[in-house]
């Protein structure tokens, strides 16, 4: 009996250790990037264009990343929400719905580099969209579509059934009920889901590298069919090909900015999620 108690203690220590390890890794990475990158965060670095690996700032990269995720969201947002509405409110329990779900899951499992290759073959060469903002944004949209679908579906499902009953009892049609009651109640949840998808799209490198541009462009695209710079690709290029300390400093700066944007989106998403859970007393996600 005493033996078991002692064992319990050792097991507990070991479990504590493994659990704290996973937090420590996260903290270590963030601190390291923050400390190394902090020195680069000057107004000049954030507002000028890069020149080769060692000079200039990352303004076109920051704006380019925002453009890319914007195009991505214009595609994946509406389609994801509409598909989520269908799956939660309309989809009958039959083989077709099963197939729909199967393909949403399948798309979620496609490795990002395969999406990149597909974007290159289909969007860039077959559709002649060129290496461009449009190709890159759309390819990113393909990648995060399953996340926006699932998040919308979950958020809509979490709306209490009584809301729907009340609206239908007042004589509203099914679509009116969804549009006026269900969608409004689910809005914070849907936005949370979209933001988490956005966080995924912002850091994606392989897809953008193959379809949107080389990352070092020093100009913003003048049209949607021109190449666009982006933070992750810039970071990749400069970290693997610039071998001077000046280049590395820029890589730290870019990594910090990227991490910062990612964190802001995530914190905002989780605040919104907490607000939503409190308001509706429901759990989702």
């Amino acid at each position: 009996m005493v033996n078991e108690q002692v064992k319990e203690k050792y097991v507990k220590i070991f479990l504590y250790f493994t659990a704290s390890f996973s937090i420590l890794v996260l903290i270590a990475i963030m601190f390291f990037i923050a400390i190394k990158g902090m020195g680069m965060l000057t107004v000049e670095f954030l507002t000028t264009a890069p020149y080769r690996f060692e000079y200039g700032g990352i303004y076109p990269q920051i704006i380019g990343t925002l453009y890319l995720t914007g195009v991505c969201m214009v595609f994946a947002g509406p389609i994801g929400i509409l598909a989520g509405i269908y799956l939660s409110e309309y989809a009958p329990v039959n083989i077709i719905t099963k197939i729909l779900r199967f393909f949403v899951e399948s798309l979620a499992g496609v490795p990002s580099i395969v999406i990149g290759l597909f974007g290159l073959a289909f969007l860039v060469y077959y559709m002649h969209f060129q290496i461009s903002l449009f190709s890159g944004g759309l390819a990113l949209g393909f990648m995060i579509l399953p996340w926006t679908v699932r998040a919308s579906e979950e958020a809509i499902r979490a709306v209490p059934f009584s809301y729907r009953e009340a609206s239908l009892a007042l004589g509203a049609s099914k679509w009116q009920t969804i549009k006026e009651v269900v969608a409004k109640a689910a809005a914070p949840g849907i936005v949370t889901g979209l933001l988490l998808g956005l966080g995924k799209a912002i850091g994606e490198t392989a897809v953008v590298l193959l379809t949107a541009g080389s990352g070092l462009e020093s100009f913003l695209p003048r049209s949607i069919f021109e190449p666009v710079a982006s933070l992750p690709v810039y970071l990749y290029m400069i970290a693997t090909q610039g071998h001077t300390s000046e280049a590395y400093n820029r890589a730290y700066g870019a990594a910090l900015v990227l991490l910062g944007i990612f964190l802001v989106i995530n914190v905002f998403a989780s605040l919104l999620r907490n607000y939503y859970i409190k308001k509706h007393r429901v759990r989702f996600g």
Binding site: S22, I23, V25, L26, I29, F32, I33, L196, G199, K200, I202, G203, E204, T205, P232, L235, Y236, A239, A251, A255, L258, L259, F262, N266, S270
Partner: peptide, 17 residues
């Protein structure tokens, strides 16, 4: 929540680290 955060950290930043 930190584990969930770790899922999303851009892989390029991890690679750079």
């Amino acid at each position: 929540s930190s584990v969930e955060m770790l899922v999303g950290i851009p892989s390029i930043v991890l690679g750079f680290f």
